[in-house]
Nucleic acid binder design. Structure first.
Lengths: 176, 176
DNA sequence: TATTGTTATACTCTATAACTATA
DNA sequence: TATAGTTATAGAGTATAACAATA
């Protein structure tokens, strides 16, 4: 009994927690993204897809004859990282790399019928997943969220003063 | 000239892009998070911090004598992953592991004066970073965004019907 | 038995540099 | 020379299982 009193005394439950971190959009973004991403991975796994391969498959289905570098630009990933993703989609026959007559450097990516079928099924699965995870938000709030996120994303290409500093693209200005 | 015409004809600029993916909150979340995270890493680097170590330092500063397992719970990370983070903070003397008299298994984490100083500076740097990246959003919209994200996060612990199933915490119910 | 911290390991996503073959 | 695809490699974050010390 005395032991229990001591235990409670030393436990000293923190009342602050991460309250101050919550003031950062980035921190709240990270937590929400992690939850959704983990569940998305879980529901895609039985279909043999990961988030990256589903995203690529979706873009390829919607943009026939896309080239890999265009895919990279659309998804904002590095060209080099598209290779393994494309490989993972081509191997099970979900997409195919077709040669382009006029430019033998590039491939025209096209989804196969199986790829389109799997894309449809995965999309249904993901919609159910979001409906399950986002019950706390109304349809309007979900759209509002997407719009706000889109504005963060879009502002990356026109930051404050970008027009005044035409040199632009100064990413790594290590001060050392 | 003829070559240029052919080139334009084959280029076939995609007009869809990721439009369908944009309908997923998870996708927009991922893109926005990635932008913010990359810039946060960049501005924290000169201070010798990463996002994970800054977050841990912030929580430790705000919750003196925190134990590592409590830190893990607050940040929603695995206990095992706190070890390397704590090490990275203890090594340069930003925090200290103090022994707890009543429980020799656990440590009481406390920030040093240097740790508190660096935390303050890093917080200023991160606030500037968010102000720079989130110019597209008003202060009210930023708070709205945080609130919406918090509701996604919070709903993880009280999904639909959770009140009816007091066992709670059923995270990985693999259907296989 | 249960819990705290720990180690080891693996997986996902991302970033960079350098190479090849074409243009 | 510039571009498309590729390879190799590294880093950050996360997840799981198993262990020793302690409760």
């Amino acid at each position: 009994m005395a032991l229990r009193v001591v235990k409670e005394a030393e436990q000293e439950v923190p009342v602050i927690g991460d309250r101050n971190l919550r003031g950062f959009v980035g921190y709240s973004l990270k937590r929400a993204y992690h939850l959704i991403q983990a569940d998305a991975m879980r529901v895609l796994d039985p279909l043999g897809l990961r988030i990256s391969t589903y995203s690529a498959l979706a873009v390829i289905c919607d943009n026939p004859d896309l080239r890999q570098s265009q895919l990279a630009e659309i998804l904002s990933i590095e060209r080099s990282n598209t290779v393994v993703i494309i490989d993972a989609l081509e191997q099970p026959g979900l997409i195919a790399r077709h040669r382009v007559p006029n430019d033998r450097r590039s491939y025209a990516l096209r989804a196969t019928p199986q790829g389109r079928r799997l894309h449809k099924e995965a999309t249904r699965v993901l919609e159910a997943h979001e409906n399950r995870l986002l019950t706390a938000l109304s349809a309007e709030e979900r759209q509002l969220m997407i719009d706000l996120l889109r504005r963060i994303d879009g502002s990356a290409f026109s930051e404050q003063g970008a027009a005044d500093h035409p040199e632009g693209g100064h990413r790594h200005e290590r001060p050392d």
